[in-house]
Structures are given as structure tokens and as C-alpha cells.
């Protein structure tokens, strides 16, 4: 019997789902941790880019706002309501894109998207916790969940709801 330990302010919990390795691939500890304690929930003061994303299939929603200074992402607000995969992906986005230049951010998105679509990543490129979402690939209908925060980010940058500052 394999036991897992979840950290954070959850006390130690044991789980016994070893008969289904595919699920362990999907619901990695780190994903559940992001789901329970998502990053990026603090509103930003100055919104320079924003977009709302929605998956009409399941009703998952994402609201995203960026504060950008000198082409660098200073603060990210991302509020996602949906399944563990989309919430975790949004939380990871908030974590990894913080303090990145817009170009760096776009590159991370491109790599992440490649990974979700089955393109293997070059070893030098580090996408941090996002790597944990690779297991989603085996559940094709859930890939959209993982990508939703990122397509919303992409739309924000594309200026769909780009707010000009004076």
C-alpha cells in the first residue's frame, strides 16, 4: 500500500489509491496543493492587461489581470473557478510568470502548450511546477482545463480586453 502525504495546512493525510496509477499521474500532490491553496488571488492595483476566459463545455471560469512595468510582469491576479486541473494551472501561472518579461512569459506559454500537445521539451527549459501537469495529456478531454488559464493570458496580451493607461 503506497501512502502519500499532503503538506500545507492540511494535516498529514494518507491515501490508498494505488490500484490506479493513471490517476496518480493526473492528480499529483503538487497539483492538489495548488488546487487547495491557489496563488494569484490578490487583486492588482493597476490593470494593464486583462481578460476573462471560459470553457463553455464545463462552465470553468478564469479572470486574469496583469500589472506590467517596463515590459515586466509585476503582479498577477488570476481568479479561477473550476476543476482541480484548471485551478492548479492558474495558480502555477501566477507563480511562474511573476517578474518575467512579457517575452519570457510568452515563451513559457509556448513551451507549456507544446508539452500539453505532446511535444517533448528541451531539457534546459525549466517550466517549474507546470511539469506536473504533463499527466493530463493522458486525459485528452482535460487538456482544455489545463490550458484555459493560459489561453486567457494569451488573450489578455493580444489585447482583447487591454486597458490603456494614461
Amino acid at each position: 500500500m503506497n501512502q502519500k502525504v499532503l503538506k500545507g495546512n492540511m494535516s498529514v493525510i494518507t491515501m490508498t489509491n494505488k490500484s490506479l496509477p493513471q490517476l496518480d499521474e493526473l492528480y499529483k500532490e503538487i497539483i492538489l496543493e495548488h488546487y487547495r491553496h491557489p496563488h494569484g488571488r490578490i487583486p492588482v492595483e493597476h490593470i494593464h492587461y486583462q481578460a476573462d476566459g471560459m470553457n463553455p463545455l464545463c462552465g470553468d471560469e478564469v479572470k486574469l489581470a496583469l500589472e506590467v512595468e517596463n515590459n515586466k510582469i509585476k503582479r498577477i491576479f488570476i481568479d479561477s473557478h473550476g476543476c482541480s486541473i484548471s485551478v492548479a494551472s492558474a495558480s502555477m501561472l501566477a507563480e511562474i510568470l511573476n517578474n518575467k518579461t512579457l517575452d519570457e512569459a510568452k515563451l513559457i506559454y509556448a513551451h507549456f502548450k507544446d508539452m500539453m500537445h505532446g511535444v517533448s521539451l528541451s531539457e534546459e527549459f525549466d517550466i517549474g511546477d507546470l511539469e506536473a501537469l504533463e499527466g493530463v495529456k493522458k486525459f485528452p478531454v482535460r487538456i482544455k482545463c489545463a490550458l484555459l488559464p493560459w489561453t486567457t493570458f494569451d488573450e489578455a496580451l493580444a489585447g482583447h480586453k487591454h486597458i490603456e493607461i494614461s
Binding site: Y27, C58, C83, S84, V87, R142
Partner: peptide, 9 residues
């Protein structure tokens, strides 16, 4: 637990 997670599991 989101319904999609329940259904997937």
C-alpha cells in the same frame, strides 16, 4: 471537488 474531477476519477 469539482464535478469534472469526480467524473474523471
Amino acid at each position: 471537488v469539482h464535478p469534472h474531477d469526480i467524473a474523471t476519477i
